[in-house]
Design a protein around this nucleic acid. Structure first.
Lengths: 242, 242
DNA sequence: CGATTGAATTTTGTATACAATTTTGGCCTA
DNA sequence: TAGGCCAAAATTGTATACAAAATTCAATCG
């Protein structure tokens, strides 16, 4: 009876569930994706102001779709908007990391539990294949490819949780954290640890041990964010006195 | 050092933390709040289409700020947008409730734990006062006033968690659920139960027992959503055959 | 020489105009 | 009469124009 349910959604670009049947994507949707990538990849430095004019020229569009996109990114927390004073890329502070962690941690743990409940054998196999690819990239020290597989795995788990609301909520937060991986490059010891944690994940998924997977995902996230925080502390030390 | 932090935020209307020093609120911010209220209060029926023209006339504004507001509400999940085909109010289905519960439950539990960690005696006292008011309204069967106190308490707990990201994320989801309280009116037995659960909450908060509060909040939410689901099932039964 | 005030410039907020797509209604045909 | 096709209307997507606020910079005053 409820026909309106599986409609095309906004921000299709970063959704976990893929409805790729949309051929005509609106301009501001593209802008949301492209602008988010710009921020996430650090091409727009945290704290820097973002005049509308500049972005209009860069994307070669008018202000209307750009502003609509900026509203969404402000809601996601990637931009700070001040009335009549414009937009600036939100800062990545240690406090922000500490603030985001418990929330993402709770969601990540939940996704682990739900994923173990609903994941299919085929999905586990696919995730396993992706994991093996990731390990190969890890051995060859191919950072970019490694990250791509890494994110693919996390998205697959999120998808296996069979909860679009969870996925959307998590992704909304992850943008703020994802860019940190560009800011803080992986140290070798942390990298070894991360791969080891991923092994644990796969095992828990195989055994469909939701509690274990939840715990691993949470720890995994915490370790990752701690690494980012270390980097931020260190960086702060170079600019501040003492 | 990071000066951009405590800037005015978008959607100030429903934030938990109150920065009321802003005198000049932009038009689309007002529209976000007003349109959300319209949806939450059920004045725009779930599933109904929402032509821009109509809302422009109702709010007496042009399409530009309205569209910016609609983008945000679509992100919140209150509106479904289809390119070139307009907006419709998202449906409130049983599946949607089941989907939202685990996510909100996890966040609610988290807020309980954090609140017990950071809440001050003064805050507990304020919450307690609000609780007493709520009980009075409950005894007098004043539904609207009861709900107002109820929401105030939940917001106070969320605020005590000292985590704006958590608050924002939770509020983003709560809009979808809040309107259900208008759809499904409280039955007496459920009402008794809810008040009793609130007593438990206050006790846990007093004892600063985070684990207990987390559990109570989660159960409280589950009971509330179950009541909504019962109502939806019943309602569906009257329209569908069997 | 520094601070303050005020006009010019820039930037944002809102409204309107134009283009493109979808929906609707009617007409024609099989 | 039913179905399909084309045109007209309505609705959405985008661009531009105008208004208001904020920033800048310089000139004047202390």
């Amino acid at each position: 009876m409820a026909g309106q349910d599986s409609n095309v959604r906004e921000n299709a670009g970063t959704e976990v569930g893929e409805d790729q049947r949309v051929r005509r994507i609106t301009l501001h949707d593209q802008v949301v994706t492209r602008l988010r990538d710009l921020i996430v990849e650090g091409q727009l430095a945290p704290g820097s102001r973002v005049p509308e004019r500049e972005l209009c020229e860069r994307f070669d569009i008018s202000r209307t779709p750009l502003r609509e996109a900026m509203k969404v990114l402000a809601w996601e927390g990637l931009l700070d908007l001040s009335p009549n004073r414009g937009a600036s890329v939100s800062e990545v502070s240690i406090e922000a990391v500490d603030e985001v962690f418990p929330v993402m941690g709770a969601l990540e743990a939940l996704s682990g539990e739900l994923a173990c409940r609903y994941v299919t054998d085929a999905e586990i196999e696919a995730i396993n294949a992706c994991h093996q690819r990731m390990v190969r990239h890890y051995r060859r020290r191919q950072l970019d490819e490694y990250f791509r597989c890494n994110q693919e795995i996390h998205e697959a788990i999120l998808r296996a949780a069979r909860n679009p609301t969870l996925a959307r909520t998590y992704q909304g937060l992850s943008g703020r954290v994802r860019r940190m991986r560009y800011i803080a490059n992986l140290e070798q010891s942390r990298w070894d640890q991360a791969v080891s944690e991923h092994e644990d994940m796969l095992r828990a998924l195989h055994e469909r041990n939701g509690e274990a997977l939840a715990h691993i995902l949470r720890t995994h996230l915490k370790n990752k964010l701690d690494a980012v925080k270390d980097y931020l502390v260190q960086r702060k030390g170079t600019t501040d006195a003492d």
